[in-house]
């Protein structure tokens, strides 16, 4: 059925690798203007905002357009646990495990 899947995979590999590689290999860090340097240093905090919201509320449904209450509460409870644990500056492993634990308990009693 999928005799050509390997070519799809290699094509996917190339178009995924090139954007990952180009800036690191082609941009000279010393040549970047100061304003742009500042922008690039902002990227991690902005990326994290965009990676967490709205996705944490749509783990099952995949989109805000299809969000369910179950989805919403799941993200809210897990996210709240992770927030409290990281606000208390727990080790990141325990932040992750505590969120998993709370949601396991939540799923079992539901």
């Amino acid at each position: 059925m999928f005799s050509s899947v390997i070519w799809v995979i290699l094509g996917m590999g190339v178009v995924t690798y090139v954007p990952r590689m180009l800036p690191l290999v082609a941009i000279k860090a010393e040549g970047v203007p100061p304003f742009l340097q500042g922008v690039l240093k902002n990227v991690p905090f902005a990326v994290l905002g965009a990676l967490i919201f709205p996705a944490i509320f749509t783990i099952q449904s995949g989109s805000l357009l299809h969000i369910t209450w179950d989805d919403f509460f799941f993200g809210l409870i897990g996210g709240a646990m992770a927030f409290i644990a990281s606000y208390l500056e727990w080790n990141i492993i325990f932040v992750v495990l505590s969120a998993i634990f709370v949601l396991t308990v939540y799923s079992l009693i539901l």
């Binding site: 902005a46 905002g49 932040v95």
Partner: peptide, 29 residues
Amino acid sequence: IALYAMFIGLVVPSLKKERKALALFILSA
């Protein structure tokens, strides 16, 4: 939830300390 919990665990300590980081995070979210 694991990866989202990890993202939260990574970013919250910086959000507590730096207002610029907090502004970036909220606006982008």
